[in-house]
């Protein structure tokens, strides 16, 4: 299993499209947002623009990394027959999915770290514990989307998966505070948007705020739903060989 995980990570890091889409793109957007809003400005209840978008671009990159890394690849590799080929090895059936999630988990790190580094240069100032805690929170949160990606990968054919992933990803981002803060009117709906909850994980770095436990609970709920969906679809796919 270790070799499969290594192989998956190696492939992802070699993929230039991955680097463009999940690392470079959010980083550039981040720089753009800072200059568009003005770095001294504040949004959403006194939070500075550079902090707000640092988080939202880190989550944007992380979600993109795991969704494309799992959904599209699983779907493609089901079609190409690699999944069948793996079933002819002594590896247990779950190894493939676990390796995909593990490689996703590794590859979200650059997406988060690059945006953090830019943020630090732009003058986001947090304590060392806050930096670490924020990084850890966003990294752990990305697993929820990895599970969603696995489910989508088993749900559809490659030609359908790409648009499905893009639509799901963009809608969740649009209504989840990725490009602009969620206003009061949208907040009730946003409670059911995993990307919004994901962004809420970062609120503890604001003065006087602690970790948003409701968001944590919400994300755990989504995790359970996505994992159950992925397991169901995986079993269905295995029966069809």
């Amino acid at each position: 299993m270790k070799t499969l995980v290594q192989l998956e990570i190696l492939r992802t890091l070699r993929n230039k499209r991955y680097l463009m889409f999940t690392v470079l793109y959010p980083a550039l957007l981040y720089v753009f947002f800072i200059s568009a809003y003005g770095s001294a400005e504040t949004v959403a209840g006194g939070l500075s623009v550079k902090t707000y978008f640092m988080v939202s671009m880190a989550t944007f990159g992380a979600v993109g990394a795991v969704l494309t890394g799992s959904a599209q690849r699983i779907s493609l590799e089901r079609k190409s027959g690699w999944v069948r080929q793996l079933r002819l090895t002594a590896l247990p059936g779950r190894a493939y999915t676990i390796a995909k999630i593990a490689s996703c988990a590794v590859t979200t790190l650059p997406a988060i770290v690059v945006v953090f580094v830019i943020g630090a240069f732009e003058g986001v100032s947090l304590s060392a514990t806050e930096w670490l805690g924020l990084g850890l929170a966003l990294w752990l949160g990305s697993f929820v989307f990895a599970a969603l990606g696995v489910a989508l990968g088993y749900a559809a054919q490659p030609d359908a998966v790409q648009p499905i992933v893009m639509i799901v990803y963009m809608l969740m981002a649009l209504l989840g505070g990725t490009w602009f803060p969620v206003g009061d009117s949208l907040r009730t709906v946003a409670q059911f948007n995993p990307v919004y909850l994901y962004n809420q994980l970062a609120t503890f770095v604001q003065p006087g705020q602690s970790l948003d436990l409701a968001a944590v609970a919400g994300l755990l709920g989504f995790l359970v739903v996505f994992v159950a969906g992925a397991a169901f679809l995986y079993r269905k796919d295995t029966k069809q060989a």
């Binding site: 192989l7 590799e77 027959g81 690699w82 002819l88």
Partner: peptide, 26 residues
């Protein structure tokens, strides 16, 4: 050991890496 018509290969890796993987998991 089996070689199927429908058995796909993993993309974005070198032949050597793929063969080493197969030997490792066997």
């Amino acid at each position: 050991g089996a070689m199927l018509q429908s058995g796909g290969l993993l993309g974005e890796v070198k032949v050597r890496e793929l063969v080493r993987f197969a030997c490792d998991v066997h």
